[in-house]
Computed example of a mutant assay.
Amino acid sequence: MGQLQRDHTERQDWARGWAKLKEFTEREGHARVPYEHKEGAFPLGQWVAEQRRAYGAGQVNGRRAARLEKLGMAWTAADARFQENLAAARVYYQEHWTLCAPRSAAGLDKPIGQWLSNLRRPGALAEHPEWEAALKAVDEDWNPPWSTEWQRHYAALRELMRDEDGPAQVLPGFTVHGMDVGKWLARQRKPEVWAADGQRERLEQLGITPPAPAPEEPKVSAETSTAPVSAFERGVAALAQYKARTGSVTVPRGRVEQLEDGAEVRLGVWIMNQKSRRAKLTTDKLSELAALGLGWALEG
């Protein structure tokens, strides 16, 4: 009697699992149930994994196998391992926002970083397009045409800016998961580094653009230029301007004189420097200083 009761309970449990799988396949269009998936409160992913294990051990009768296959059940151990690793990869994605994990990364105690790296090898998924589709469903950029390191930094930046109304200021030193995202972003914005196709579009979607090039200063020929160009000429111009305004060439040491073009000259310090360098000044320069009223410029 006890055995009959156990058999009855087992049949009910199996029928419930099959019915939940049928609901899943009718809704999703396939029977690739993630290991961690629950259909309502029923742990459907674990139930499917157990059916694969039992099938491999010869413990699934022909009728049940046929009913499961009709729903699209895949029996191989490779499929089972893929689904379990995919579940671990989803956990990693939820925390890091990308499947471009470093090789040392783990999820649910599985080495998913190395697993994903293996799947990125050329031809690794040639016979399993459904696996690639499942990975893309988690992360469209799981296998980008650029480095996984670039993608990791971009994913972190994307999540940082997701809730911002405008471009966020992410400065060097701002780290996420041990990555200096601010330093990385500053490098991306350099004109000589500005991203390649694909990368550029992704950054622009976040409002990231390279800084505008500095405007070129207008070129003025030496013949028409009236602005002083050398430090000495700026000093002479500042002293002449100060004398015209005050009538004196006695300048306080801390005096700063602003020229018409906006340049600032520390005039008091400049005069002291010229005086200390008098022996090295040319005759023409000494004459200019003397003409402005600096008596020491005339000393023998």
Rank of each mutant, 00 (worst) to 15 (best):
P218M: 07
A227G: 08
E233R: 11
L239T: 01
A212T: 10
T209K: 09
P215E: 08
G235M: 01
Q188M: 15
E217C: 05
E233T: 11
G207L: 02
Q205N: 03
I208R: 05
W194E: 06
F232W: 13
S225D: 11
P215H: 04
P228N: 12
E204L: 06
V236Y: 10
V193L: 05
G207Y: 02
E201G: 03
R200D: 01
S221Y: 09
E204S: 08
A237R: 02
E201M: 01
A227D: 07
V220A: 05
V193S: 08
T209E: 05
A222P: 07
K243Y: 01
A195V: 08
E233Q: 13
L239V: 01
R200G: 04
V229A: 14
P213Q: 15
R202G: 10
L206I: 04
E204C: 08
V193P: 13
S225M: 09
E192M: 12
R200E: 03
T246E: 00
A240L: 00
A227E: 09
P228A: 12
K243H: 05
T226R: 11
P210D: 12
E216L: 11
R245F: 01
T226M: 05
Q241V: 00
S225P: 04
W194S: 12
A227L: 07
A244F: 00
Y242I: 00
S221W: 11
E204P: 05
K219H: 11
L239G: 00
K243D: 01
P218D: 13
V229E: 14
K219T: 12
V236M: 12
T209L: 08
A214E: 11
P228H: 10
Q199P: 03
R234P: 07
E216V: 11
P191A: 15
F232A: 14
V193W: 06
L206R: 04
E192A: 15
Q205I: 04
K190D: 13
G207C: 05
T226V: 07
T246M: 02
A212W: 01
E216W: 08
V193H: 10
E223W: 14
P211E: 15
S221D: 14
Q188H: 12
K243A: 05
T246A: 03
E233N: 09
R200I: 01
I208D: 03
P210M: 11
G207M: 04
K190N: 14
E201S: 00
R234N: 10
P218H: 11
Q199E: 04
E192C: 13
W194V: 11
R234F: 06
V220F: 03
